[in-house]
Simulated assay, not measured.
Amino acid sequence: MTILITGMAGFIGYHLAHALASRGEDVVGIDDLNAYYPVQLKHDRLAALARDHGDRVRFVQVDIADEAALEEALAGAEIDGIVHLAAQAGVRYSIENPRAYARANLLGHLNILELARTRKTAHLVYASSSSVYGGNKELPFRVEDRVDHPVSLYAATKKADELMSESYAHLYRTPMTGLRFFTVYGPWGRPDMAPWLFTSAILEGRPIKVFNGGAMQRDFTYIDDIVNGIVAALDHPPADDRSQKAGGSVSPHAIYNIGNNRAEELGRFVDLIEAACGRPAVREMMPMQPGDVVATYADTSAIERDLGYRASTTIDVGIPRFVEWFKSTHGKYK
């Protein structure tokens, strides 16, 4: 099989490409290599894939929001399945640059839906986000919960992606699975996320910004668990049998939470990074940030039931692994 991965130079895309190629799949990866964070990190991920897998992984630089360029880049490519990870990420950046989110997350997603439709792709797996739950108070978050009140534009675009996918699954019967990721971390991670920001600051003796006075919880999910869940989803397209799927659709469209099924206190998370770094953090208490939420916590019962997925990596194991990797690259990505 040949799997198309959008956003392959990204954090999750890199790890997924490695996993699929390791089990014998051919991978075509696309990415626009934008400068939201240091592009060298993306180039190094691609170089690692080329070193480890050679011709089994092929990369093409293209912007998914550019319909003509996307068609040209993939002309003649055999595509059996698609994992659509490319997006403009980041809750806070969506306040600064909203049009980037409309372009990548809305127009880009539509172009991938059209690609799946015209190529009659066997299955499209796409990335949604725990951000769609907004300010929901009831924990843990369930895929059956209403998600009509996003607190950031990023969250609104991800909810829109789910709705567009539902319409395409209904109209064209293309099997689709949406995955609501919960705070993914691990080696080769993103420099704009808390594990990287905190580790870098602690090692350099700079203060870390602890928002909402530290009264926050996150369902931190280690990258290996996320990849296992994506692969399980890819291998099990929802049936077009008019039965109700996870998320409520009667079309071949399922939506799952993919998380660690536990909410961790921010303070304990920082404690583990301190221990792995071997030095204390200087904690600068900050107010809540616009667009942020106090807690995330995934109910993963649906994906456990349907796909046999269950995260197995606690932050006690995952955080030291990340810090060890970070130390080996510290200072390279500025």
Rank of each mutant, 00 (worst) to 15 (best):
N260C: 09
N228S: 15
V210D: 06
K245S: 03
F211Q: 05
A246C: 08
R262I: 12
A263V: 02
I255T: 09
I208E: 11
S249P: 14
P237M: 07
Q244R: 10
G214E: 09
G247M: 06
D224L: 10
G248L: 05
A246Q: 03
I223S: 01
A246I: 05
V231L: 00
D235R: 15
V231M: 07
D241Y: 12
F269M: 13
L234A: 04
D240Q: 06
V231C: 05
R242A: 14
I230A: 06
G229K: 03
D241M: 05
R206I: 07
H236L: 03
N261G: 12
G214L: 09
R242T: 08
S243H: 15
N212F: 07
A215G: 10
R206M: 15
V210L: 13
P207R: 14
K209H: 14
Y222S: 03
G205R: 07
T221D: 01
A232C: 08
A263G: 09
R262F: 14
Q217S: 11
R268K: 08
L234Y: 06
M216D: 00
Y256N: 03
V227K: 06
A232N: 13
R262W: 06
G229T: 01
L266S: 10
E204V: 02
R268P: 00
Y222L: 04
P252D: 07
N257G: 06
E265G: 14
K245A: 09
I230N: 01
A246K: 03
R218M: 03
G205W: 08
F220A: 09
R218D: 01
P237G: 04
A263P: 07
G205T: 09
F211N: 04
I230C: 08
L234N: 06
